[in-house]
Simulated assay, not measured.
Amino acid sequence: MSEIKTRNDTAVIYFNGLGKKYEKPTAGDFLLNGHPVKGDDNEILPEDRVVSLIKQETANFISHHFTQIVLLAGAGSSISGLLGKQKVGSSMRDLTTEVEKTLKEKKLLTLEQLADLSKYEIDDCKASDFNLEDLMSCIERAEKYISEKDKTAFDKTYEDIHKTIRVATSYEYDPNILHHDRIIKMLSDRVVAPNKLTIATTNYDTLFEDAAKAQDFSVVDGFSYDANPVFDADNFEWNLVRDIPNLATSELEYKKQVINLIKLHGSLTWERDTDGLVHRRLKTQVSQPIMIFPSSDKYLQSYTEPYFDLFSKFQELLNRPDTLLITNGFSFGDNHISQMVHHAIMHNGGLSVMITDNNITSQSSSGWLDIYNLMEARYPVIFVKSTLNSLSDYLGEVPQ
Rank of each mutant, 00 (worst) to 15 (best):
Pro245Val: 06
Arg190Ser: 01
Tyr254Ala: 07
Ala193Trp: 02
Val230Ser: 12
Ala211Ile: 11
Tyr303Ala: 05
Glu133Met: 00
Asp174His: 04
Met346Leu: 15
Ser295His: 09
Gln363Phe: 06
Val192Ile: 12
Asn319Gly: 11
Val70Ile: 15
Leu31His: 03
Tyr14Leu: 09
Asp370Leu: 02
Glu43Val: 15
Lys101Arg: 02
Ser365Ala: 08
Ala127Arg: 01
Asp393Arg: 06
Thr356Ser: 13
Lys196Ala: 12
Leu82Lys: 14
Thr274Val: 12
Ile139Phe: 05
Glu105Trp: 00
Tyr145His: 07
Glu316Leu: 10
Glu23Met: 08
Ser364Tyr: 14
Arg182Trp: 05
Glu23Phe: 01
Asp221Pro: 04
Tyr379Pro: 01
Val384Pro: 02
Thr6Glu: 04
Pro194Gln: 01
Gln86Asn: 05
Lys21Thr: 05
Leu324Pro: 08
Ile139Asp: 12
Asn42Gln: 12
Lys149Gly: 00
Val220Thr: 09
Asp124Trp: 03
Leu300Pro: 04
Asn373Arg: 13
Gly350Arg: 07
Asp29Thr: 11
Thr6Arg: 07
Glu43Ser: 14
Ala211Phe: 08
Ile69Phe: 07
Gly367Asn: 04
Leu369Ile: 14
Phe311Ser: 09
Phe383Cys: 07
Leu268Phe: 05
Phe66Pro: 15
Ser147Val: 15
Gln86Arg: 14
Ser80Arg: 03
Asp226Gly: 13
Phe15Asn: 02
Asp94Glu: 03
Ile13Arg: 15
Lys163Asn: 10
His180Arg: 02
Tyr204Trp: 15
Glu112Asn: 10
Leu109Met: 12
Asp370Thr: 11
Asn389Asp: 10
Ser352Ile: 03
Ile161Trp: 02
Thr152Gly: 00
Asp216Ile: 00
Ser392Thr: 13
Ser295Trp: 06
Leu117Pro: 07
Thr269Asn: 14
Glu143Ala: 14
Lys149Ser: 14
Ile146Asn: 01
Asp134Gly: 14
Gln315Ser: 12
Tyr225Thr: 10
Leu324Tyr: 08
Gln215Cys: 07
Phe314Asp: 09
Ser2Pro: 06
Asn33Glu: 01
Lys106Thr: 04
Asp210Asn: 01
Glu397Arg: 13
Lys256Tyr: 10
Thr284Cys: 02
Lys101Ser: 00
Val219Met: 03
Ser331Ile: 13
Gln301Gly: 10
Phe332Met: 13
Gly367Arg: 03
Gln400Ala: 11
Gln257Asn: 15
Glu253Pro: 03
Gly329Gln: 10
Asp123Ser: 04
Glu209Thr: 00
His64Glu: 13
Gln363Thr: 09
Val384Phe: 00
Ser338Asp: 05
Gly367Leu: 12
Ile184Ala: 03
His343Met: 11
Asn319Glu: 12
Lys87Ile: 08
Tyr303Met: 08
Leu45Arg: 07
Thr323Ala: 08
Asn8Asp: 14
Lys255Asp: 07
Leu117Trp: 15
Asp9Ala: 06
Leu207Ile: 05
Val99Lys: 01
Thr202Asp: 04
Met375Arg: 01
Val51Ile: 15
Val167Arg: 07
Ala59Phe: 01
Tyr173Asn: 02
Pro25Tyr: 08
Ile122Trp: 05
Arg242Phe: 06
Pro36Asn: 07
Glu316Val: 03
Gly266Val: 10
Phe314Ser: 09
Cys138Gln: 15
Leu117Arg: 12
Val341Met: 00
His265Val: 09
